[in-house]
Design a protein around this nucleic acid. Structure first.
Length: 172
DNA sequence: TACATAAGAATAG
DNA sequence: CTATTCTTATGTA
């Protein structure tokens, strides 16, 4: 029996975002850079033998949250049910820890490492780079210890945009 | 099993 | 600023 996912695509100032959820919760949130990105996503679901079905109505709640968020309103995604469809146990631990970073705050990678009791800071970055739930898992709020941004899988521009948004400096 | 890689950090020069 | 070293999960062979 194939697992079924409902998806929709929503617009925001920098482009489009792909949302997918299962019956258990939100599973996938990705920035769409171009058409190739969409095909990669479709392939990912195909390889996992998951079926995708366009259904906006089933994602009504999530869409509302994102629209509010992009208007600069303080939104809290922590109570939203999620359903991880990828990731090792370690990665999921890092993701769950990262979700707890509140709106508008930033933390160094070290902060997450300390919570997990080790010094392999780089593996934290590796885990966040595979974050399947953009924004819901706020990896854009994780910076380097010296205050520089570090990296971002969906592009540093997006990371900067999200940080400005949360500081209410979304004028540029 | 062995080795290279990664969105880091601390330190020395 | 750059170079070096430490660290650890992960992917590849």
């Amino acid at each position: 029996m194939k697992k079924i996912f409902f998806y929709t695509i929503l617009r925001f100032p920098l482009g489009e975002i792909f949302l997918a959820k299962s019956c258990r919760g939100l599973s996938f949130v990705q920035f769409i850079k171009d058409r190739a990105q969409l095909e990669k996503i479709a392939e990912f679901f195909k390889e996992k033998d998951f079926s995708l079905s366009l259904d906006e109505s089933k994602l009504h709640q999530e869409k509302k949250l994102f629209y509010h968020y992009f208007k600069g309103e303080k939104e809290d995604f922590t109570s939203l049910p999620v359903d991880f469809i990828s990731g090792t146990p370690y990665q999921r631990k890092v993701w769950q820890e990262a979700r707890k970073i509140p709106f508008g705050k930033t933390q160094p990678y070290r902060f997450l490492a300390q919570k997990l009791n080790h010094k392999g800071y780089r593996s934290i970055g590796q885990a966040l780079a595979r974050n399947p739930l953009l924004i819901v898992i706020p990896c854009h709020r994780v910076l380097r210890s010296d205050g520089t941004l570090g990296g971002f899988s969906a592009g540093l521009e997006l990371k900067k945009f999200l940080l400005r948004l949360e500081r209410g400096e979304n004028s540029n």
